[in-house]
Design a binder for these strands. Structure first.
Length: 477
RNA sequence: CGGGACGUAGCACAGCUUGGUAGUGCGCUUGGUUCGGGACCAAGAGGUCGAGGGUUCGAAUCCCUCCGUUCCGACCA
């Protein structure tokens, strides 16, 4: 194979970080702008986000969430109302201080998240139990002045959805945080082919201002974890700070309970690092902007292009996202190009096929090719896409399961996280032990997994005190 | 924000030590031949050398500052 050096990507084993940025750029997902951490989401990358949006938006609306849009800016005075929240975000805010050449007296913070805007609004529109619950969500971008940035994983600006909900009771609010966590889990299993670990964050790792933070954690191919989304139960802290009250059925004035939740374009980073290989991106069929690419061979021959067009139309009619590449590049070039871009299925149609009434379909995940009868294309594509999704999910799950190892000492923990993966540990619950682990191993507590809380020991390996909770530690992005 | 590396055409790089006309390969454009794993021939186009300042008769090259990318830490979706 005559691979052009300029087009080649670094192999994952050589330099995983370089491989990642190579894929981001060469698969045309993004480009850098001239301001640090502000990336350009190119059409192909943005299209992946649109697929994620489409799925989640439907699920959110399915449980009664409404989309809204809040302002881009937050007056500093308003932002300062909730103490923990301010302390959490103050170091990374971008602030506008000049408007039309005049100094702005109350500087405007470019939203790093919109809790306070929602709270301010809820304070105005909630006054009776009849006004509850409210479940709002917005699709927008936020800005955080990050010190180190990486495409999709950590940007100064990133795209996300932030849901902000408010309820009469604690149970409903926490239930909402858990319900959304479940939806995020479904997104992983059913759409992204990523098995997320769902769990509760430790106090140290939880969101500024939250009582409870839940997260979905994905394990990258290099063994590092990536927090891919969070949901929070806020209790009444924000409501108290912003004076949100409602008169209940018993005529008593009560403070409502809130939750919030979000996933961001970081999910694209997860997809890249969970599924990608040395030939580039590998996209799960349900988010792939192009699910099937049709490559005509000897396309100038009588009938080839016409057939390719016909197949394209047939597949589009079935609702698939199909692209026909009739450019004058060689077939080999096209194969490599669409592999780089992670297109799940490639359909080849050439003179041989035309004669025999077949086509060839190749899978991105393993290069496996099958000859398919023309009349069976729709059926086979449906089967193959489903199969590809399942293979990807299984593979990721096997990888995840084999990288969760129970440890009973800090030394064991270090050995596990150094190799890559989650070290599963019984934990006493104190901050000191968590800090100590970070100091000794650079690993952090990812979460206390909801589905894996059966104790396998009774004491914390760090301090030796009684331990009841299972925590996963890992090095993280 | 601390430490390292890097920044020259769309991409990958050479040129810098020792200052003196902007280079190579790939890609791109046009025409032709090709086409089942990154095809070939021919003719072309394309660069304020990351930005600003300084030294000099003269700066891609030497000096200073800034910006960006990247890696390792600290901090964070």
């Amino acid at each position: 194979m005559n691979i052009n050096k300029n087009d080649a990507i670094t192999s994952r084993d050589t330099d995983f970080a370089k491989w990642y940025t190579d894929v981001c750029r060469k698969a045309e997902l993004m480009d850098y702008s001239s301001v640090k951490g502000f990336i350009i989401y190119r059409p192909y990358g943005y299209a992946i986000w649109e697929q994620i949006q489409k799925y989640l938006d439907g699920r959110f609306k399915g449980i009664g969430v409404s989309n809204v849009y809040m302002p881009l800016v937050i007056p500093e005075s308003l932002f300062n109302k909730e103490k923990e929240h301010v302390e959490g975000f103050a170091p990374e805010t971008l602030i506008a201080t000049i408007g039309g050449k005049a100094k702005i007296d109350d500087p405007l913070i470019i939203r790093p998240t919109s809790e306070v805007l929602f709270c301010e609004h809820y304070a105005k529109i909630v006054s009776s139990h009849r006004d509850l619950p409210k479940m709002y969500n917005q699709w927008c971008s936020v800005v955080r002045w990050e010190k180190t940035t990486r495409p999709f994983l950590r940007g100064s600006e990133f795209l996300w959805q932030e849901g902000h909900t408010i309820f009469a009771t604690e149970g409903e609010a926490r239930g909402n945080a858990l319900e959304i966590l479940k939806i995020y889990g479904d997104l992983g299993n059913d759409v992204l082919a990523i098995p997320f670990v769902k769990g509760l964050k430790t106090d140290k790792e939880k969101f500024a201002g939250a009582l409870e933070t839940y997260s979905i954690e994905a394990l990258m191919h290099d063994g590092k974890a990536l927090q891919s989304g969070t949901t929070h139960y806020f209790g009444t802290g924000f409501a108290e700070a912003f004076g949100i009250k409602f008169q209940d059925k018993d005529n008593i004035l009560r403070t409502p309970h809130q939750a919030s939740w979000g996933v961001s374009t970081r999910l694209i980073g997860s997809i890249i690092m969970v599924h990608g290989d040395d030939n580039g991106l590998v996209l799960p069929p349900l988010v792939a902007p192009i699910q099937i690419v049709i490559i005509p061979i000897q396309q100038n021959r009588e009938g080839i292009l016409a057939k390719a067009e016909e197949i394209k139309n047939r597949l589009e009619k079935e609702g698939y996202r199909v692209s026909l590449d009739a450019s004058d590049r060689s077939p080999g070039w096209k194969y490599a190009e669409y592999e780089m871009k992670g297109v799940p299925l490639r359909l080849e149609i050439g003179p041989r096929d035309l004669e025999s009434g077949n086509v060839v379909i190749a899978r991105r995940i393993d290069g496996h090719k099958e000859v398919v009868k023309d009349s069976d294309i729709e059926k086979e594509v449906q089967r193959l896409l489903k199969e590809v999704h399942n293979v990807m999910l299984d593979k990721a799950r096997v990888f995840l399961d084999s990288h969760i190892l129970a440890v009973k000492s800090v030394a064991e923990l270090k050995s596990v996280v150094d190799k890559g993966g989650y070290a599963k540990m019984m934990w006493c619950g104190c901050r000191e032990c968590e800090d100590k682990i970070k100091e000794l191993t650079t690993a952090t507590a990812r979460c206390m997994p909801l589905d894996d809380q059966i104790p396998f020991d009774d004491k914390c390996p760090v301090c030796g005190k009684k331990a009841e909770r299972v925590v996963y530690f890992a090095k993280a992005y």
